[in-house]
Amino acid sequence: MLDQVRAAVAEITGRAADDVRRLGGGDTAAAFAVRLDNGETVFAKTAPATMSGAIEAEAASLAWLAEPGAVAVPALRGHTESWLVTEHVPEAAPSPGAAERLGRELAALHAAGAPAFGAAPPGGPADAWIGLAPMRNEPSGQQWPSFYARHRVEPYLRRAVDSGTLSAEASAVISRVCAQIDDLAGPAEPPARLHGDLWSGNVHWGTQRAWLIDPAAHGGHRETDLAMLHLFGCPHLDRVLAAYQEVSSLADGWRQRIGLHQLFPLLVHTVLFGGGYASQAVAAARSALDV
């Protein structure tokens, strides 16, 4: 495997690799820190062969998130069909200052906008991925509630029911959310430029700021990114949110809609991993209906 890493990095960067170190973490791809013959260290990753288009989608996502200059994302050094190489960002402990900066930068990223709900990054494939799960990205002429129900929640709801992971009773609760989503979604908002998979593991803390990694970028609702930060916890989240609102106020009732926006990633986890995620998805649906 290390020889494959060296060959891929040399092809992309034009430099030989002096040292290759396997990195831990993540469940989607094999990742490596690679020191080049000029002393620079880069980050390299590969996706499973079953995830066709995943590298292309991530490269397009990184470029799209970087374009407005709002957030920190690792600079793209290049990619092939199978390998992605970016700058390597040393890890540091989360700090309140970096969290506040992340909040302000995330607000600016969302404000950069997208052509439509469901729009893929320019040059990105329609068939993209969120973690190990396929995610279809194509511009929708619908408003966010209809887009979210039809193109995010319902496909995974069907898969969870068909696989036997979700009971008919549980499915009925989530279907009620889709049926009532126009009344649950809050005020209409324009499409935001989303990271798309912004759980805490995809926030990489550097010495001065937080960096966003492993995006599943698309046009969506800005509350979705914030709900993802809540899903598995994020260091100094209260500071992130306060700083975000200093730049861009969230609509009234946004906290009550967190469960609604978590429904898609929880259904993805239900399909992929089963276990307690099905009950979490139902709890999120019930919280949305309680608004």
Rank of each mutant, 00 (worst) to 15 (best):
V5T: 11
A8R: 02
A10W: 03
E11T: 13
I12E: 15
D19L: 12
R22L: 14
F32H: 12
F32D: 06
D37E: 13
E40R: 06
E40D: 15
T41H: 09
K45T: 02
T46R: 11
T46E: 05
A49Y: 03
T50Y: 11
T50L: 14
M51W: 08
M51Q: 15
A60Q: 03
W64Q: 00
E67I: 00
P68E: 11
P68S: 11
G69R: 02
P74K: 04
A75Q: 12
H79N: 09
V85Q: 03
E87Q: 08
H88M: 13
V89F: 03
E91L: 12
A93I: 06
G97E: 15
E100Q: 10
L106M: 11
H110D: 14
G113Q: 13
F117L: 14
A120E: 15
G124T: 07
G124D: 12
A128H: 01
L132K: 06
P134H: 07
E138H: 09
Q142V: 02
Q143D: 10
Q143K: 12
P145V: 10
S146I: 05
H151E: 13
R152P: 05
V153A: 07
P155F: 11
A160R: 02
D162N: 13
D162E: 14
T165N: 13
T165G: 14
A170W: 03
V173S: 06
R176V: 04
V177M: 08
C178F: 05
D182V: 06
D182F: 02
D182T: 07
A185T: 02
G186R: 04
G186S: 10
P187Q: 05
P187M: 05
A192D: 13
L198D: 05
W199K: 04
W199E: 15
V203R: 04
H204P: 00
H204D: 04
G206Q: 10
Q208C: 10
A210H: 01
L212G: 00
I213N: 01
A216N: 01
G219C: 07
G219K: 00
G220M: 10
L231M: 15
F232K: 01
C234L: 15
H236E: 12
A242M: 09
A243E: 14
E246Q: 14
V247N: 06
A251L: 07
G253Y: 11
R257S: 12
R257I: 01
I258H: 07
L260W: 04
L266Y: 06
L266I: 08
G274Y: 09
G276T: 09
A278S: 14
S279P: 13
A281F: 05
A283S: 15
A288R: 02
